[in-house]
Design a protein around this nucleic acid. Structure first.
Lengths: 191, 191
DNA sequence: ATCTAAGCGGAGGAATAATCTCCGTTTATG
DNA sequence: CATAAACGGAGATTATTCCTCCGCTTAGAT
């Protein structure tokens, strides 16, 4: 593959992630090409159908996020700190793109990543619960869905820097809540 | 206005709220008519343009939610309890529809409601902060945006009952966090 | 320097989806 | 019953996104 083609392919993936994070859903294909400064033809040559583009984007983000998470687990001593840092990092590294994948656990496409991700989440949540520093009914699901929730842009026209600042702020509140249950014990949702 | 027409109009509004809450955005008009069991013609007679329908829906929900909130303020003794109950109630009564109104504070359309809403939020947040039972940098904005965030359906295909249960569970975590800040003091976002 | 296969661009036609009009039929109500 | 008010929904219109096609450009080998 020619070097410029390689670079363009990468750029298309990055732009896709950007756009998904901005609009909170599947971006129109021509918007991707335009933002990347490339022709639509080029987009279609690299990614002949919708799926291939979105999957490439999700894979890109998952790889980045999981790797960084694994580093945190090894580096950071305190369990809650790992959890907190992981969530903020994931928000910034574009974890929100997973929202475009309808069946979230369609193993078929990334059996490798899914295993790593599962192991990572189990390790992070498990450690924090073990420590006793977060509510004991906390599940991996809570973290995954919370990330999707906080990563999505609010459908209000906030400037994107404010948008992100607010997401991090509210994420912090959420995590504080995991550490210090005050309310009525929440109904535990199995699995 | 004929009695049946009146009833249909109301039904259209309710269905609109339902649909917005389900899909998390502006529903196609024909979907509204169909779900209401009415013809498209009927929808267009009552609401000639998009705006009029959406505005009616938002007004309906705002009125319901604000009134209930005002009751809570008068009835419930403890400040944090008011806050918590208000947020859960708002989630259920469809406050998520405000997400379809782009300029959230376009005073022009509901000067009356906006004043009441502002006063209500100030009163709820003010009381809780006064009491010292929530973080002192909590703002009305945090509550409004958090509500929008938690009310939106996750773009993952969860069955809607699970969806709602999860939203309430995570909302509880969030509120717990407001009560017990542990993390680094969040950057205060002005206004 | 030259050649050429790999890669690019983007006009414009096809497909899809949402909007809205129009008028014949139905029905509430006096 | 009479009739004006209200309804229904087929189908035309408009908007949006998708995607093909082919002539042009360029990286990279020789």
């Amino acid at each position: 593959m020619r070097a410029d083609a390689q670079k363009n392919r990468q750029r298309l993936i990055e732009v896709t992630v950007e756009l998904v994070m901005e609009i909170g859903g599947e971006p129109p294909r021509d918007a991707v090409a335009e933002r990347a400064g490339l022709g639509i033809g080029t987009l279609y040559r690299h990614f002949p159908d919708q799926q291939s583009l979105l999957h490439a984007a999700v894979r890109h983000v998952l790889e980045k996020t999981i790797s960084a998470g694994e580093d945190l687990v090894e580096t950071v001593p305190d369990g809650v700190d790992v959890l907190r840092q992981y969530m903020h990092m994931a928000l910034d590294s574009g974890i929100g793109v997973v929202n475009i994948i309808r069946p979230l656990l369609e193993n078929r496409y990334w059996p490798d990543l899914l295993d790593r991700a599962t192991a990572l989440m189990k390790s992070i949540v498990g450690r924090a619960v073990q420590e006793g520093s977060v509510r004991s009914d906390l599940s991996e699901r809570d973290i995954v869905f919370a990330l999707i929730r906080f990563a999505r842009p609010l459908p209000v026209g906030l400037p994107s820097s404010e948008e992100r600042a607010l997401a991090h702020r509210h994420l912090d509140f959420y995590i504080d809540g995991l550490c210090a249950p005050r309310g009525p014990p929440s109904q535990v949702i199995p699995n």
